[in-house]
């Protein structure tokens, strides 16, 4: 199956592109996707915290819903899913 990942703001630089299409095995999870995307230790440090969890200052949406609402990174992906990755902005 194929999923599309859109990167915004600093994540465009971290991943070197604004959008990627990734081929995954059926039943793959968001975590599997992140493991493929983060192919260097430098990248992993920018995405995961010290416990291996997605950093709290990163927003990741799957079909318009935050992955914190859909079983975090264990959430299973489906063919055609669009994942959006962007930083948590909170300043005013």
């Amino acid at each position: 199956m194929k999923v599309r990942v859109r990167f915004f703001a600093a994540f465009k630089e971290i991943f070197g592109t604004g959008e990627r299409e990734i081929e995954l095995d059926s039943g793959a999870s968001v975590q599997d996707l992140l493991n493929i995307l983060c192919d260097s230790s430098g990248c992993r440090q920018k995405i995961f915290d010290e416990t291996g969890r997605l950093r709290r200052d990163i927003n990741m949406l799957k079909k318009g819903r935050h992955i914190q609402l859909v079983d975090e990174t264990h959430s299973e992906l489906e063919d055609g899913d669009v994942i959006t990755v962007f930083p948590a902005l909170f300043g005013g």
Partner: peptide, 13 residues
């Protein structure tokens, strides 16, 4: 709905 949890708050640039 959009942001279920508050991000860590530090003085942002």
């Amino acid at each position: 709905c959009i942001f279920p949890e508050a991000p860590p708050t530090v003085a942002p640039p």
